[in-house]
Amino acid sequence: MVNMLDAGHIWHEEAATQLLLSTAQPRIRFKKFTVNEEKEDGADWLWWWVDRDGTSYGLLVQAKILKRKGKRWSIDFTYKTKGDDRTQLSKLIRAANRFEVAAAYVLYCGDPEYRATLACDRTHGDALCKERDRVGVSTISALVAETAVSRYGKDSGVAAFHDAVPVEDIANPDSLDTPIVPLARGLAEDFDRFLRQPQTGSRRVAKELLRPVQQIRNGQFAGAAVMQRADPVSGAFFQDIPNDYGHFSVPYLTHMLRGLRADAPDYVRDVLEGRTPPAWVTDHVGGIVVIPDADAPSTTAGRIAGGVERLILLDSPDAPQPLRDHPGQVA
């Protein structure tokens, strides 16, 4: 992104993906398919974290650029395909149902110089929002984007950027993991413990993606949280959570946490063990990329060895890839 800016141009997600894949091989493994479902699904990839014990968290992800035009900053969450009245955002949230995961965005936001005129005066610790470290490639739940659009309209890009979490930080064991305080009371013991106690690996990722969503819900004038229990999702880590909507379009706890699994889905295992996933997966993704934890040995004999593996299923052959290499780690 910085190189393109230095050359006087904006970056493009497709070019960044091609550069990353060609440069990172053979460290990462990837395979492309011919299907392109982005028009229908509004998504670029299906993204999984897989722990050594099989605990996994999945997201259906669309990549977006934080764009500037004069003094206006925007992210086109409400983009519509010609001849289709549905927004890409609404299609993304609906399409996540196919894989029973959360819908999310990865945001390409440039460097601090690019963001110098961004009008967000809120802070993150001691840093202004626009000056945060590592925020050039960040992620948010689609529910955060949905709320930003309904509250701020054309200024939704700045609001969403403020709530976005750097990709490196969502699984960072060194960053502060403060409790999430829900509105609902009488939660199941395992779910309450997840919210209030520090987490690692896939559980940490799920918690950090949920955090901004829960903060938005806590600020909504939608009455007390609904205590009715949601229908359990087969294989989900938590089977007893409230069916609370707040002002979101879907029950937010179910949506955000259905992708947290005690075991990786079979099609994820297929990829890790060298098999081709079934047609219902390959018909809806344009490629598969497996990125192992930098400190972990390679996966062998069907086992997930050491640390966390990050599995990304690209939904378009040219879909953007948000991860950036740093010395000693894969971001």
Rank of each mutant, 00 (worst) to 15 (best):
K64R: 11
P198F: 11
I65W: 05
R115D: 08
D76C: 05
R204Y: 00
C109V: 10
V165Q: 07
I10A: 13
A95K: 00
P322Q: 06
T254S: 04
S141C: 10
D192A: 15
A15S: 14
I304G: 02
K207P: 00
Q239H: 10
K64T: 06
V290F: 10
P166R: 00
W280V: 10
L59H: 00
A301D: 15
R29N: 13
D76I: 08
R303T: 13
G286H: 02
G259T: 03
D51V: 04
F248Q: 03
W45Y: 15
A63P: 05
F194L: 05
R27I: 13
V2N: 11
N218Q: 12
K91R: 15
S22D: 14
T178M: 13
D244N: 05
V268R: 01
L92K: 04
A96W: 00
D111R: 06
P317D: 09
D325H: 14
A116F: 10
Q214L: 09
I10V: 14
K154D: 12
Q199I: 03
L128F: 11
D44R: 02
T81N: 11
Y252S: 03
R72L: 11
P277C: 11
D53G: 01
A159M: 07
I288W: 03
A160S: 14
P232Q: 09
S138H: 06
D6V: 05
R229V: 11
L257A: 01
R258D: 02
P182R: 04
R151Y: 05
V50Q: 04
Y79H: 15
E131P: 02
P198K: 10
W280H: 13
N97F: 02
K32V: 12
L195K: 05
I241G: 05
V35E: 11
D240G: 09
W47C: 06
P265L: 06
K67R: 15
T300N: 14
A230H: 00
L5C: 06
K64M: 09
A15V: 12
V165A: 07
Q199E: 13
G42R: 02
A236W: 01
C129M: 10
V271H: 04
L311M: 13
L20Y: 15
D190Q: 12
Y252N: 04
L20P: 03
R303L: 14
E100L: 08
L107T: 08
N172V: 02
A230M: 07
L209D: 00
R94H: 14
T147K: 05
D6H: 12
R324P: 00
A127Q: 15
L118K: 02
V106P: 03
G235H: 00
G274C: 11
S22W: 10
D85S: 14
T276Y: 09
T200P: 03
L195M: 07
P251W: 01
D133R: 15
N243L: 06
D76P: 11
K80I: 06
T55M: 08
L128W: 09
H124C: 10
K80F: 04
D295P: 08
Q214G: 03
G246R: 06
D283C: 12
A222M: 04
